[in-house]
């Protein structure tokens, strides 16, 4: 249908503005609000780490080295033999020089913040690759246990 009716140009202009606004919004949301790095992490390589206790670690929690985000948690399962938590970490492909003797720990951002996996690079010449396992792990610090131990030791001190 042709738009010989007056206002055809105006309509096209406004709809163009609307669609452009939508696309710009999408770009803004994708790059400014969301983080495309997260998306790039998705096609990274996977390594595994067993923890005795993961505390409140959740899927998509960040994986960081020296506080810099390099990947995220993409899977949490319970090992059938050892009853350890097996955590799958996906790490962006360009961080391909993590030594195999690196250690993984579960830390908490702030006192009550979300938990994340921190990697402490080792010194081996060989690097972690897809499907490798991180041997050295430190479990999550469970606050209740910590407080319990503190109280217990204080009580012992008082008893002495």
């Amino acid at each position: 249908m042709s738009n010989t009716a007056t206002g055809g140009r105006k309509i096209e202009l406004w709809v163009g503005v609307l669609v452009l606004g939508g696309l710009l919004s999408l770009g803004f949301l994708a790059f400014e609000v969301g983080n495309f790095d997260n998306a790039r992490v998705r096609d990274g390589y996977r390594v595994y780490a067993d923890f005795q206790n993961i505390g409140g670690l959740t899927l998509r929690a960040p994986v960081a080295v020296a506080g810099v985000r390099i990947g995220q948690v993409t899977g949490i399962t319970l090992s059938r033999d050892s009853f350890n938590a097996r955590v799958e970490l996906t790490i962006a492909r360009h961080y391909d020089n993590l030594p195999v003797d690196s250690s993984a720990s579960i830390f908490t951002k702030g006192l009550l913040g979300a938990q994340y996996v921190g990697l402490e690079p080792g010194s081996d010449e060989e690097f972690l690759g897809d499907g490798d396992e991180i041997e050295f792990t430190n479990s999550s610090v469970v606050l209740e246990q910590l407080i319990g131990e503190l109280l217990f030791s204080k009580a012992e001190e008082a008893a002495e």
């Binding site: 999408l26 969301g34 983080n35």
Partner: peptide
């Protein structure tokens, strides 16, 4: 403000599902 968004908002999980 921006950093907390960028750390927590996933392009596909959050923005994509919203779309």
């Amino acid at each position: 403000y921006w950093a907390s968004m960028q750390n927590g908002v996933d392009v596909f999980e959050d923005i994509g599902n919203g779309i």
